[in-house]
Design a protein around this nucleic acid. Structure first.
Ligand SMILES: [Zn+2]
Length: 394
DNA sequence: CGTGTTTGACCGGCGC
DNA sequence: GCGCCGGTCAAACACG
């Protein structure tokens, strides 16, 4: 009895004070020297006292039993608590992992979103500028435009006209038309934005030009243009436009990244080389993948293009030019392994000008006597070409 | 009457 | 803040 009690106390030294007191009060181990236990000297007790002690012992047996049970319960609870703690720790670890993943994912999303916004902003701001000789007030490019403004540009006697695409409601594409201050026969048309609607084939090229230019400028793929620059410029330029020295100029200078296509046969040094941060590439470098369709269109309308843009007497060499043209082009296609974005942009831009001169006339090759006023033979586009005289620049 | 042009007003950005 | 400037708006107008 006493030993068991002692054992309990030894096994569970953390028993609370009340239990210890109770056990101590009925302690059976002889401790005569202890003054507090002196009155409990059993041999000196009477039978009644022994009986009372016996009752106490029996009562304490229940207490101890309950204590053992509670201790067992505490032990079980402790084990359960331990396991629960382990579970919580594991869950916390998983939660921390998930939180880290979530955080990383959000950071990645924000980065992608920022890049996307920047991309869209650049796409919207990127411009394609076309310099071409034209007596007409506006290049017929296959799209429908509505004039929404006109301003006198500073330092230029000719006003600048603002047009908006009206082929679909809400189309964000705009363009500015202005005559060159030095040479008023040169028409500068600047396109901005991407069409939100399908386009006729003639106009489709220009739209892809804008977006491709933006993509190209954004991706910084101009570094791959070194290969283009190393090619023979004269060979390439003659391949695409035999009688003109056409150049594509890409300017990343503020405020807008601009791709300038100079289709004038008498390049103006003040215009083509005015800013230092430019890349100049011969136009014929734009023939790799998108060639077949676009180029077929170009061949179809080449004479029209010549009449409208160049106003020169190159008609006599048109027929033989077409065949040798394509052959030269095949060679160039095989030779050039340049950035598809860049080449697509240039090819699309060129074909846009070429095809846009006469979008619906598939027999353009027959009108070899066309001059700068050839846009009237099958005029199904806008009414602008009928109002040449209304342009203040003339 | 619908559509497109004209044209002065208006607005935001920027430099001083 | 102010004026300049590039760009846009929208009322008035022209036209078929
Ligand atoms: Zn459009």
């Amino acid at each position: 009895m006493a030993s068991s009690s002692c054992g309990l106390l030894t096994l569970f030294p953390d028993l609370n004070e009340s239990t210890r007191e109770k056990t101590g009060a009925v302690a059976l181990e002889p401790q005569p020297s202890a003054p507090e236990f002196a009155p409990l000297n059993f041999p000196m007790r009477s039978v009644e006292q022994k009986m009372a002690v016996q009752t106490d012992v029996e009562a304490n047996q229940y207490t101890l039993k309950a204590c053992v049970e509670s201790m067992t319960a505490v032990t079980n609870l402790s084990h359960r608590l331990q396991s629960r703690t382990n579970e919580v720790q594991q869950l916390n670890a998983q939660l921390a992992l998930l939180q880290r993943m979530y955080k990383d994912a959000r950071a990645e999303i924000s980065v992608l979103k920022a890049e996307n916004v920047a991309s869209e902003a650049t796409m919207r701001k990127a411009r394609v500028s076309v310099r071409a000789r034209s007596e007409a007030p506006m290049i017929t490019d296959g799209c429908q435009w509505r004039k929404y403004g006109q301003k006198m540009a500073k330092g230029n006697p000719c006003p600048r006209a603002y047009y908006r695409c009206t082929m679909a409601i809400g189309c964000p594409v705009r363009k500015q038309v202005q005559r060159c201050a030095e040479d008023r026969t040169i028409l500068i048309t600047t396109y901005e934005g991407t069409h939100n609607h399908p386009l006729p084939p003639a106009a489709m090229a220009m739209a892809s030009t804008t977006s491709s230019a933006a993509t190209m400028l954004l991706s910084g793929s101009m570094s791959s243009g070194d290969g283009l620059m190393n090619m023979n410029p004269n060979f390439l330029a003659r391949a695409i436009l035999p009688c003109s020295s056409s150049m594509a100029t890409i300017s990343a200078s503020a405020p807008f990244p601009t791709v300038t296509l100079d289709l004038t046969n008498t390049p103006n040094p003040l215009q083509t080389q005015r800013t230092p941060t430019q890349f100049q590439v011969p136009l014929a470098s734009g023939f790799t993948r998108p060639v077949p369709h676009v180029f077929g269109q170009a061949l179809h309308n080449q004479s029209k293009f010549s009449g409208l843009q160049l106003s020169q007497d190159m008609d006599s060499v048109q027929a033989p030019q077409n065949t040798s043209f394509s052959d030269t082009l095949s060679a160039a296609t095989a030779a050039i392994t340049a950035d598809p974005n860049f080449t697509a942009a240039l090819a699309a831009a060129i074909s846009s000008i070429i095809g846009g001169a006469q979008p619906n006339n598939n027999h353009a090759n027959n009108t070899t006597t066309s001059t700068s006023t050839t846009t009237n033979t099958n005029n199904t586009t806008t009414s602008n070409s009928n109002k040449i005289g209304s342009f203040p620049g003339n």
